[in-house]
């Protein structure tokens, strides 16, 4: 049962799913870092990105690179717009108001998507360059399963560079550390928060493109489950901590794939694993695995 082929197959699957979770989790953790807000709309922005790809490739038959660029840009702008319209007016409100507003935006985007795109699931376009199957001996691997971790790693390096080495990154870190003090130091809060949303949503856009190619079916409710799981991934690693989000994402990816591989009977409960792990971790370490003492938050 535990032959090498299957082990390799399982591990690549786990790695690619985990990387996808990590990519989306970063968006949650960045936003939480600066605003202390669970951006419930993140999952819906991720869902809309998939529809943009669908329309770009299947309907307007644009080349994939044009579609992907447009998708990432539009997604990033959409995330920023949501912040501008629904979160910024509530800056001084109690935190619960802004949380409810985030739920409202998520609800709105889901309903809007149902009207515009229809409730029936659609087939995500397949791009041979990404979705071809490679064979190494007995191991069958989607090219995508190799591309996903690489793309995630590259984006992550860029993000780390941005946060650690640029003035914008420094502003983001300052806002995350102390909101009021940062604004007293002359940091433009609104600009910094907008940039954070822009980057987080762009990453969700990249994640959506790869998610769509991997799972092929899209519907207006598809963002909900990955959205919650990725938020859990962010909490698991210690919310506000970028490395934690990646760790949490990979962990959930591995747990889901490996447990189902070992105990196929549990496959129906797959979506519950993330929640169970979360609750266990929160009981042992309420601020997440890498949270708490590390003060670096973005």
């Amino acid at each position: 049962m535990f032959d090498l082929t299957r082990v390799l197959q399982t591990l690549t699957d786990a790695l690619s799913l985990g990387s996808l979770y990590a990519l989306i989790a970063i968006g949650y953790t960045m936003v939480y870092g600066v605003l202390r807000l669970i951006n419930f709309a993140h999952g819906e922005i991720f869902m809309i990105a998939m529809y943009i790809v669908f329309y770009g490739i299947s309907l307007f038959t644009l080349p994939w690179y044009v579609t992907f660029t447009v998708t990432i840009l539009v997604t990033a702008l959409l995330g920023t717009l949501a912040e501008r319209l629904a979160y910024r007016p509530l800056r001084s409100a109690p935190r619960i108001s802004i949380l409810v507003s985030a739920i409202g935006v998520s609800y709105f985007l889901q309903n809007l998507a149902t009207v515009i795109f229809g409730g029936r699931p659609l087939n995500f376009p397949q791009i041979p360059l990404f979705t071809d199957v490679l064979t190494f001996g007995d191991v069958y691997i989607h090219r995508l399963s190799l591309i996903v971790p690489i793309v995630t790693a590259v984006l992550l390096l860029m993000l780390v560079f941005l946060i650690k080495r640029t003035r914008t990154g420094m502003a983001m870190r300052a806002v995350a550390r102390d909101y009021d003090a940062a604004s007293l130091m002359g940091i433009d809060l609104n600009r910094t928060i907008a940039i954070t949303f822009f980057i987080g949503s762009a990453l969700a856009g990249v994640g959506a493109i790869m998610w769509g190619m991997k799972y092929t079916r899209i519907s207006p409710t598809i963002g909900a489950m990955p959205g919650i799981k990725c938020f859990i991934a962010a909490v698991l690693g210690g919310i506000g901590n970028t490395a934690g989000a990646v760790l949490g994402g990979l962990m959930i990816g591995f747990i889901e794939i490996v447990i189902v591989a070992l105990f196929p009977a549990l496959s129906g409960y797959r979506d519950a694993f993330a929640f169970i792990v979360l609750i266990i971790v929160l009981l042992v370490k309420p601020t997440g695995l890498l949270g708490g003492k590390t003060t670096e938050k973005v």
Binding site: I38, I232, Y269, A272, F275, L278, I279
Partner: peptide
């Protein structure tokens, strides 16, 4: 927020 997400998680577990 942790409580919100944990209770939401339990609600999903019940459904699953």
């Amino acid at each position: 927020d942790y409580l919100a997400i944990a209770t939401l998680g339990f609600s999903e577990i019940i459904r699953i």
